[in-house]
Design a binder for these strands. Structure first.
Ligand code: SF4
Ligand code: SF4
Lengths: 144, 144
DNA sequence: GTATAAGATGTATTTATTATACACCTATAA
DNA sequence: TTATAGGTGTATAATAAATACATCTTATAC
């Protein structure tokens, strides 16, 4: 039971940009800092862009910046945008409706409530909130 | 973001036993009813047994029964016993402590709260609760 | 206008996890 | 003593996720 690194990387990207002195950075800088796959990050950033969280600019001198201030970026929104489904149990998937306990299984509703409780907590925080503990970060690339 | 079928099967087993007229059944009966892998179920049932949720008896006339009444079986306990970890994000895993935002990342604490909220909901229900909607089930094997 | 630096896109490969299958063992009641 | 039940360990298959690679597009600087 874990979110994908894809989603976690998205959140790291947002945090890194927010903590960058200029508010502007590049994919390569972020990949070097966290020592993670640049190729993977490219796709994360692209999706963050298409979902309206970051503004990307191509070409020399380009890079990425937040589209909105951290106070306006909700963590639940980000997680929902990056994670590809929240089918907590099999029967949540419309394509998998063969469980013999359907449609009156109380478990299904319990998991729905649990999942909502989980997302409610994420919805209660913004990027600004999760940055509170992080005063400054050493922006240098990680030496592995 | 989904629990494993392993865990869901465990819960189905408990529900099936609870709804069985005799309170006693066999792995083969359950596998046939849900049309799922008997081999997989064997391991699910074994673990349910070793965690004290069901009582298994070998040999002719054997099978499985609940060890406690449904009111005493907490869903959260079952899920915790079957799912093999709740490392909501990478840094929850003690073996993965290389994220550059450690140790002051607020996101980590947010996910901890979200995960707890999720499990709290599961902890709030018993097997008896999730069975409420299910009045009777046709115990015949599924014809695929 | 051309070289350079940035992100965009599509595909392929590798890795990890989960699910399933198979062979064989142990226990127990009829 | 045989049939029936679960137990155990290993191997394989299926799925999902992460990573790598090749190529394209865009934009700035000079
Ligand atoms: S047992 Fe209940 S929750 Fe699980 S798949 Fe079947 S209907 Fe859904
Ligand atoms: S970004 Fe925060 S939550 Fe994610 S792995 Fe790093 S420390 Fe943990």
């Amino acid at each position: 039971m874990q979110i994908t690194s894809y989603t976690d990387y998205a959140l790291r990207v947002l945090m890194f940009i927010a903590k960058s002195p200029t508010g502007q950075t590049t994919i390569t800088e972020i990949a070097d800092f966290f020592n993670i796959s640049r190729n993977h990050l490219v796709k994360v950033v692209h999706q963050l862009g298409s979902k309206g969280f970051v503004k990307t600019t191509r070409g020399k001198g380009g890079g990425l910046a937040l589209q909105r201030p951290p106070e306006m970026i909700n963590i639940g929104d980000v997680v929902r945008s990056m994670e590809n489904h929240f089918n907590w149990v099999e029967c949540f998937d419309p394509a998998q409706q063969h469980c013999r306990l359907l449609p009156n299984c109380g478990l299904k509703h319990l998991f729905a409530r649990a999942g909502n409780a989980y997302l409610d907590v994420l919805d209660s925080a913004t990027l600004a909130d999760v940055l509170l503990g992080i005063t400054t970060i050493d922006l240098n690339p990680q030496i592995p």
